[in-house]
Design a protein around this nucleic acid. Structure first.
Length: 486
RNA sequence: GGCCCGUUGGUCUAUCGGCCAGGACACCAGCCCCUCACGCUGGAGAGGCGGGUUCGAUUCCCGCACGGGCUACCA
């Protein structure tokens, strides 16, 4: 039987990286075994703009390269893949449970339950909902009155249930600890513990891989599977993701925890996938970098840690930089372009000279470019004549005795260099420094700040060559003017 | 409150009773060097606490503490 896994996000439109990791584990497991991965939208208590939210979720998965064999947009043999459109199936399953005596109508009111709960608390005993004695006459009367009822599962007492969890190991629970839980609300809508069982069975899910918060509820689900006469899937409960440097659960409040943030910053999907896979999973004692194909080949649930992993932005950044190093120029240009366009630094269709300039800048930046948005932080001055001086750099490199005079001389040197390319520039500036007895740093650094405005950047000769003679000289003039004015 | 899960350096992890506890990120120092980044070399840094079992416990058991979850007509 082929392995079938699923991820069932709520349509909030927000993709928490913890959720993406869970989805990734599901996807990797399915791909590893040559099985199927499905997406199912969990919109049982449906809210606003579901469609837009779903579109956002799908976009996130597509960006990561997590493809789904069945689900929204692609359909499949078990459609629909929206729980809100599957009510008949839940109703039918509920009918069977009632018929077999596993479920019953609960006519209790909220006030009654609250009172029971309170008296349990006062008596210092755990509150569990149990069916109260009733009579056929009372039932008939309620029905005739049209009194609303919820459908509850009759939990059998005195049993011990065991989950053979693929990550957590064997976990046991006594059924006495489980109250009679609601399967269907009075309005006919199903609850998670019921709907997910029905769907997982109908969709032939073989491995339920989901967040650890569902572990306790799995016992209730076990009873539903059993009552419906369904075979059990395998379960694997993935620990939560913690905040950096802590064991506290990573919440939205922490900040950058949405996949959209990393997409917007210009991270690589390969890096994101690599990082998320390694968060709580390892292949061996030393491997860190994995391609998508390697992850598929090497992933297994038994190497997923049973304890929580903290999100580590530094590690993500390092993995990102490793991936960026390997990226071909073509994809770097493609990745960087939206950022340049958005800032108005490049406009219109990409012509050959512009492409050449972008490539030259990317080459010059080298490993300094780690995420695509770095093109703006590190390379902005290559795309605009507007020179913005970093105040600290000006203070450190330009406000020095003799610097303006030296810049005048360097301006002349640049005016005479022919051709205006890296080796020639390098030689000319070396010669200049030597002639005047200056250490290289004392020449190069001021010239860098004068032409780029920044204290750090690619090799100076590369910078000069990309900017071109006219631009360099104009910038030196502007810098000298700026220095004169104070 | 009850029940369940978890606890190795700051972080991700290795170890499936023998450990002088290994690797990676981050950190620190040095080298390279026009700055930064890259790269290279070196360094510091860990088994929550208390009991047991054992010749020997990070590894097995118990308790406590801490973190997390469930206990909902949330998912």
């Amino acid at each position: 039987m082929s392995v079938r896994t699923r991820f069932a996000p709520s349509p909030t439109g927000f993709l928490h990286i913890g959720g993406v990791r869970t989805a990734l584990f599901n996807w990797l497991l399915a791909r590893h075994h040559g099985g199927q991965f499905l997406l199912r939208i969990d919109d049982t208590d449906q809210q606003r703009h579901v469609e837009e939210a779903v579109a956002q979720i799908l976009e996130g998965f597509r960006w990561m390269g997590i493809d789904w064999d069945e689900g929204p947009e692609v359909g499949g043999p078990h459609a629909p893949y929206f729980q809100s459109r599957r009510t008949e199936r839940y109703t039918e399953a509920a009918r069977r449970l009632v018929a077999s005596g596993h479920a019953y109508r609960d006519y209790s009111t909220e006030a009654e339950r609250a009172a029971d709960k309170e008296s349990s608390e006062r008596a210092k005993v755990a509150y569990r909902f149990r069916r109260k004695p009733t009579t056929p006459e009372a039932e008939a009367r309620f029905e005739a009155e049209g009194r609303p009822f919820a459908l509850r599962f009759r939990v059998p007492l005195g049993r011990t249930l065991i989950i053979h969890d693929l990550i957590k190991g064997d976990v046991a629970q006594k059924t006495d600890e489980i109250g009679d839980f609601v399967l269907v609300r009075p309005d006919g809508s199903p609850l998670y513990n019921f709907a997910s069982v029905v769907d997982d069975v109908e969709m032939r899910i073989t491995h339920v891989v989901r967040a650890e918060e569902h572990l306790s509820n799995t016992f209730s689900q076990l009873l539903v599977f059993e009552a419906l006469g369904y075979p059990l899937p395998a379960f694997a409960h993935v620990p939560y993701v913690a905040e950096p440097g802590s064991k506290k659960k990573l919440s939205k409040r922490f900040g950058a925890v949405g996949l959209d943030h990393f997409i917007r910053e210009g991270f690589l999907p390969e890096a994101m996938m690599n990082y998320l896979a390694r968060l709580g999973w390892s292949f061996d004692a030393s491997s860190e970098i994995f391609t998508r194909a390697e992850l598929i080949e090497k992933f297994s649930l038994d190497r997923v840690n049973s304890s929580p992993a903290s999100h580590d932005p530094d590690k993500l950044f390092w993995i990102e930089s490793e991936w960026m190093k390997t990226l071909p120029m073509e994809r770097k240009v493609e990745g960087v372009l939206p950022f340049l366009t958005r800032e108005g630094l490049v406009s219109g269709p990409l012509d050959a000279p512009t492409r050449a300039r972008i490539e030259a800048v990317i080459t010059a930046l080298g490993d300094r470019l780690k995420v695509f948005s770095d093109i703006l932080k590190l390379g902005r001055y290559f795309f605009t004549e507007a020179l913005t001086h970093d105040p600290d750099a000006v203070k450190k490199r330009l406000r020095k005795q003799g610097v303006p005079a030296m810049l005048e001389q360097l301006d002349a040197v640049l005016g005479a260099v022919e051709p205006f390319d890296v080796p020639t520039l390098e030689k000319a500036i070396h010669d200049y420094a030597e002639m005047h007895g200056h250490p290289m740093g004392q020449v190069v650094n001021p010239l860098r700040v004068a032409t780029t405005g920044q204290a750090v950047g690619p090799g100076l000769y590369e910078c000069l060559a990309i900017l071109g003679r006219n631009s360099c000289r104009a910038r030196i003039k502007a810098t000298l003017e700026m220095l004169r004015q104070g």
